[in-house]
């Protein structure tokens, strides 16, 4: 259906003009189809790093490369055809239907002004179907539940047919079943994913790679199966962490205390 991108972050750092550094120069690479979870305490620079990756902020130092191309060496429209993001912003209630919101994902593909690209109809239909939104196509956002809304936001991003999908706390405000369903759906896409998550156990389950940030610096980066350990989590989050073997699964899980 779509190809997956290689993401390379080379010494990328950012600070607001005239203010202290929020993200110190950071480097890592994510291969095609891999899923990177970014974890860290509040204020660690997770959102800033994501904003650099989806080209909302321009790095003060370093570069972000998609398939070897610096995302700031090409136009925002071209980047929008490779990178899609599901953010925590909520759309304003202006009576747009689910289908119309998902169709926003085709904005970067418009050939003629105010016209639509030829593939739009098919892509929108298949994305709606994939996320089980077909039945809700004519509803407005305000009539949907939190889980349905988040599916609409994901569908909007998928309509961009991205090679890299960026997710900012996608499981926030969802109940546990919807959290698992959403992550399972993202996992099944096969695209490269960068995702910030608060739940460390969920991050370890979902991701293939994990980046641990604290105070704008990288504490650790590596395979999700090996990188997290009790000592690292204790340092990153200023808690006492313990690893315990999960009941009925091979997966070990972390528990936390102050």
């Amino acid at each position: 259906m779509r190809m997956a991108a290689v993401l390379e972050v080379e010494e990328a750092g950012w600070n607001p003009p005239g203010l202290p550094t929020v993200l110190h120069p950071t480097s890592f690479a994510v291969g095609p189809g891999e899923r990177l979870a970014i974890v860290g305490p509040n204020g660690a620079g997770k959102t800033t790093l994501l904003r650099l990756i989806y080209r909302f902020l321009r790095p003060v130092s370093g570069r972000i490369l998609i398939d070897g191309t610096d995302i700031w060496s090409v136009g925002s429209g071209q980047v929008a055809r490779s990178i899609a993001a599901v953010l925590q912003e909520q759309p304003a209630e202006f009576a747009l239907t689910v289908t119309e919101i998902v169709a926003l994902g085709r904005v970067p593909f418009r050939r003629t002004i105010a016209g639509r690209d030829a593939a739009a109809g098919g892509v929108i239909d298949s994305v709606l179907h994939r996320l089980q939104l077909t039945r809700l196509g004519r509803r407005t956002l305000s009539t949907l539940s939190g889980g349905e809304r988040q599916r609409v936001m994901l569908a909007r991003a998928l309509a961009q047919e991205p090679k890299l999908l960026v997710l900012d706390e996608p499981t926030n405000h969802l109940d546990i079943r919807h959290q698992l369903e959403l992550l399972e759906c993202v996992r099944s896409l096969g695209v490269t994913v960068v995702c910030s998550l608060h739940d460390l156990n969920m991050a370890a389950d979902f991701a293939t790679k994990i980046l641990v940030l604290r105070g704008g610096r990288t504490l650790a980066f590596g395979d999700s199966s090996t990188v997290l350990n009790a000592d690292l989590i204790s340092r990153a989050f200023s808690v006492r962490a313990h690893r315990s073997q999960g009941v009925g699964s091979a997966q070990s899980h972390f528990t936390f205390q102050l």
């Binding site: 904003r51 989806y54 080209r55 909302f56 136009g75 925002s76 429209g77 071209q78 980047v79 929008a80 055809r81 990178i83 899609a84 993001a85 953010l87 912003e89 909520q90 759309p91 304003a92 202006f94 747009l96 119309e100 919101i101 926003l104 994902g105 904005v107 970067p108 418009r110 002004i113 105010a114 909007r156 961009q160 960026v166």
Partner: peptide, 24 residues
Amino acid sequence: LWVNAGALNALTAGDETAATLGIR
């Protein structure tokens, strides 16, 4: 405004989301 109707729609989704859709 009519020519930019699609971009105006995208803006209602939020500034950052609109930016990821290639809109300045």
